[in-house]
Design a protein around this nucleic acid. Structure first.
Length: 277
DNA sequence: ATAAGGCCCTGACCGC
DNA sequence: TGCGGTCAGGGCCTTA
């Protein structure tokens, strides 16, 4: 599940591969992957453009093109943007192929088909609703706390809301709440100033750790596997303290990790380290 | 304004 | 072996 650390890893690893490269042609096999422009216009619009800049905002990849437009990619659940030899045939889950001028191609592959690609003159429209960038100075404790005042929704659900803070998904929300010793079902507005400070720090710490380990690749199901542009996995799954550890002993206190559902998302926590009250 | 639920998708998994 | 049913899950949309 690509979240902020996985997308950051993508941007960092794509930059050396794509800097100076030009897209010579593109093909779209599943038109709904292209959010903008119309899918049938996408190949003609992107052909001839070069890659200039490489940035990330929340879970969005921002690839600045040579005409000033931005190729925005959101991988959602199972999206991958793979760098492959041009002779590689697209498989059944490859929805967009972009040919490069050096004999390589970019394959957008996504079994769930939830991911979206935009090619837009102005990136701000797509990103308009995002909250602060959690690893930047703009993510401030006081503002974070102010946004929680009066909120009755579970703090886990609020962390998943990209308007509160951008880039946190199911994995890193659970890991941050554990590190902050906060029960995921607590009402957002019930957090004390000390808890808000701990959670603010935990969100930053866990995202930074995820980036250092180049993201999380979930084992077992090939479906949900996040893979880096070269096809390699990340390492952060080996540092999970609660995520998908249901029934296994808490690494701090030994209590079996519990699983509940919050906001239609599986949620993992330690009942001892993260008491409800 | 906020909260909650449905929807999009399809491979994995389960029970018979 | 095969089949039907259920589940997961980010962001967007609708409903209350």
């Amino acid at each position: 599940m690509p979240e902020l650390p996985e997308v950051e890893t993508y941007v960092r690893e794509l930059e050396p591969e794509l800097t100076g490269r030009t897209i010579t042609a593109a093909r779209v096999f599943w038109s709904r992957t292209i959010a903008e422009p119309l899918a049938e216009e996408f190949p003609a619009r992107i052909a001839g453009l070069g890659f200039d800049t490489f940035e990330r905002r929340g879970k969005y990849m921002l690839l600045g093109m040579s005409d000033g437009s931005t190729l925005i990619v959101h991988l959602r659940m199972t999206g991958k943007l793979l760098i492959l030899p041009s002779e590689r045939e697209p498989d059944k889950h490859t929805h967009v192929v972009m040919e490069l001028d050096n004999g390589l191609t970019l394959h957008y592959n996504d079994p769930r088909k939830f991911g979206r690609i935009w090619l837009v003159p102005d990136r701000t429209t797509v990103l308009a609703k995002l909250g602060p960038e959690p690893l930047a100075d703009e993510f401030e404790i006081d503002d974070f706390g102010a946004r929680l005042v009066g909120r009755t929704a579970p703090i886990k659900a609020l962390l998943l809301d990209q308007r509160l803070v951008a880039g946190v998904g199911n994995i890193y929300a659970d890991e941050a709440l554990f590190r902050a010793h906060i029960h995921p079902g607590r009402a957002g507005g019930s957090l004390t100033p000390d808890e808000i400070e701990r959670l603010h720090a935990a969100v930053r710490d866990v995202l930074a750790a995820g980036i250092r380990r180049r993201g999380s690749t979930l084992g077992g199901s090939s479906l949900q596997n996040y893979l880096r542009p070269g096809g390699l996995p990340g390492d952060f799954q080996n540092e999970f303290l609660v995520f998908r550890r249901t029934g296994q002993p808490c690494l701090v206190c030994g209590t079996p990790i519990a699983r509940i559902v919050i906001a239609q998302r599986s949620t993992h926590f330690c009942p001892t380290c993260q008491p409800a009250f």
